[in-house]
Design a protein around this nucleic acid. Structure first.
Lengths: 138, 138
DNA sequence: GTAGCTGCAAACTCTTTGCAACTCT
DNA sequence: AGAGTTGCAAAGAGTTTGCAGCTAC
């Protein structure tokens, strides 16, 4: 019998051979539930709300591990700290310069053009970041 | 008689009403001559080669000031420090993931599409970052 | 003369790490 | 049992800042 429940970070980590401790389970659940792009601090606070024994060091270590596994994407918008999000389908960001709100979008034309550009420069495209910074039209 | 010599950072700063000290003149010249995307550390070293009295604090203060004036563009590629470049014509970057080399490129299609995307989301585009990360084709 | 600039050193923020204790598997 | 994980506190990197002295205008 195959497992048809949606893939969670916890499953992905177990599959990667990691031990599943209480702290880790909590942090992964917080990330799975996040609909936004939380900072390390935010992940820490949300995790602490469930388990106050969780330390900042563990949050950092967990996020770094998830980044290395490619399960999460690390961003550094024009702020001096990192923000993370689940690595679901590929998309880009528009950051509201007034509120800091992050809007996600996808665009097939961008995907095609960036491939073409890398190719013309003699490179294989490995990764890409596109960030638009804008102000809400009044 | 108008001045037809190319615009330098020094002129732009003087025009902005800033005092032109020896240290500042040196740092601005270093940036004017830079053909790459130097880090703060690099700007510091190059400036020191001309005037060893220049301090790191002044380099940071100068770069922050130039950034605020929009004369320079601050980047944070996937490194944990900032890199700067003159704000000449608009372009994007392809970063060689193996060597860290930065290649600049421009693309009119990207410019059009990003405008369109911001518009569709109800935003006025203020700024934009596009970074491609790739590996040299063998 | 004075507002602005500077170097120094200390402070700050974000992030990483050594270590001893603990816990999944 | 043993390798992996944790919290703590200290260390690290990059960046900012208070202050007293100096300098361009």
């Amino acid at each position: 019998m195959e497992d048809h429940t949606p893939d969670t970070l916890e499953k992905a980590c177990t599959r990667a051979g990691l031990k599943m401790t209480g702290q880790r389970r909590t942090i992964l659940a917080v990330l799975d539930e996040a609909q936004d792009h939380p900072s390390v601090e935010t992940v820490y606070e949300r995790s602490r709300a469930h388990d106050s024994s969780i330390s900042m060091a563990t949050v950092y270590r967990t996020l770094n591990m998830l980044d290395e596994l490619g399960l999460v994407v690390r961003h550094e918008f024009k702020e001096n700290f990192a923000r993370y999000e689940l690595n679901m389908q590929h998309h880009h960001h528009l950051i509201d310069v007034d509120s800091g709100k992050v809007i996600e979008f996808q665009n097939i034309e961008i995907e095609q053009i960036k491939q073409k550009i890398a190719e013309e420069l003699g490179y294989d495209l490995i990764e890409c970041r596109l960030e638009l910074y804008g102000r809400k039209r009044t």
